[in-house]
Nucleic acid binder design. Structure first.
Lengths: 131, 131
DNA sequence: GCTAAACCTTACAGTTAGAGGAAGGTCAAT
DNA sequence: ATTGACCTTCCTCTAACTGTAAGGTTTAGC
């Protein structure tokens, strides 16, 4: 299977697939006589794995850890559990920050007329010299 | 006022302040005889403005627009209102995505034993060849 | 006066996770 | 023979800084 077919199946960009190979994240597929990459099921599974892990917000380095746990038959599921619960905590923290931003911006929005006048509480607030 | 004092007051890193100057985001302060930057109130206000706008999640380019609206006495508050409500929508979308990630990861977490065994639903799920 | 710490300067490289583009080889259909 | 759709590598670019190197300046202590 050639790269564009793999891209179609996994939902990853061909550029991304080559990138993952270049940084040593996935096994390098063998090449055909013409130099084209020839992918097998093994590679497809790795790429699916990566696509899912990335969608869940794991960084490339975290994906590396997850892949290595996946490949290791002696893994302790506690390690996976720990990686994932850390990630959930990161996400929760991120959500809290975004909610706070949204809250303050929304409060400012209702105070800004939003018309042809130049008066604007938002701009004034941004210019305040305080936290 | 020299750069480290400005950094302390505004909560920005000195590196960041020089960076903002370099990309033309803020006015360049005059220099003392020894070449050191000498900041005045005008610069402090700009930097406060930037710190707040960045904290609210505006990109550097959006900050540029906001700064220009701030500087323009003929601005229409509607423009500010529009920039901010777009940002609120971005934030809401972002929150929705994070919540979905968290939801799925949390569901997986309860199914992973998290002990010394190697069985792990999470790993299995990541390796699935489906969306 | 000397020295060390704590500033300041510029310039360059590195970070994340790819995307975009150039230049060129290959393959299938017309 | 040519066109278009693939494939290859290599290089540059993105955002918003941060780190590091190499060097100049100022200040405090002895």
């Amino acid at each position: 299977m050639k790269i564009s077919e793999v891209a179609k199946q996994t939902g990853l960009n061909a550029k991304t697939i080559r990138y993952y190979e270049r940084i040593g994240l996935v096994d390098r597929p063998p090449r055909l006589e013409n130099g084209y990459r020839e992918y097998a099921d093994q590679h497809l599974r790795q790429l699916w794995f990566l696509r899912h892990a990335r969608q869940f917000g794991f960084s490339i380095d975290e994906c590396r850890e997850l892949l290595s746990l996946w490949a290791n038959p002696n893994r302790r599921s506690a390690e996976v559990h720990s990686l994932v619960s850390d990630k959930v905590r990161d996400i929760e923290q991120h959500i809290r920050e975004l909610r706070e931003m949204k809250k303050v911006l929304t409060e400012l929005l209702v105070k800004c007329p939003g018309d042809d006048s130049s008066e604007c509480v938002i701009i004034d607030e941004l210019a305040q010299n305080k936290d």
